[in-house]
């Protein structure tokens, strides 16, 4: 029994440390001119999963994904809903091929993502914490 308890503690510890590699902070951002001060986790999920893309001020939200291969993208979905990118693609396969909502705008470079966030009204994106460029505002801290 003691051995069993030890094994459980070890397992929990290894899970916790495995998780911590993914735990660098990520923030959800919008343009400082967007008029949006803050979003809740549920609103961020609704926007990025295409369930309801309406901002608190009534405007349409436009979610922006970081480049497909970027560690930031997989870390964002891991921290938001604990899903890996294969699950995210399976999710969108169902919605896209049943003719419903489109997935977030897929950018090719970080620069493109930044540009969309600054110029597209209603754009919602995400960045590593502490790398906030001017004219963007943190609306949710994961």
């Amino acid at each position: 029994m003691k051995l069993f308890a030890k094994a459980i503690v070890l397992l929990l510890f290894s899970l916790a440390t495995a998780e911590s590699n993914d735990r660098s902070g990520i923030v959800v951002v919008m343009s400082a001119n967007s008029g949006i001060e803050a979003l809740t986790r549920e609103q961020v999920i609704n926007i990025f999963f295409g369930r309801f893309r309406k901002l608190p001020n009534g405007e349409t939200a436009v979610p922006v994904d970081q480049p497909a291969g970027a560690p930031l993208k997989s870390a964002f979905y891991r921290q938001l809903v604990n899903k890996d990118l294969a699950e995210i693609r399976a999710y969108w396969a169902r919605l896209v091929f049943s003719g419903r909502t489109a997935p977030p705008e897929q950018t090719k470079t970080e620069q493109e993502a930044l540009q969309l966030l600054l110029e597209q009204p209603g754009a919602v994106g995400y960045l590593w914490e502490g790398s906030l460029p001017p004219r963007l505002r943190v609306v949710f801290d994961l």
Binding site: A68, R89, W92, A93, A102, P103, E105, Q106
Partner: peptide, 9 residues
């Protein structure tokens, strides 16, 4: 082409 090319604007 990747699936997510779908999301191009």
């Amino acid at each position: 082409t990747p699936f997510l090319a779908f999301c191009e604007p």
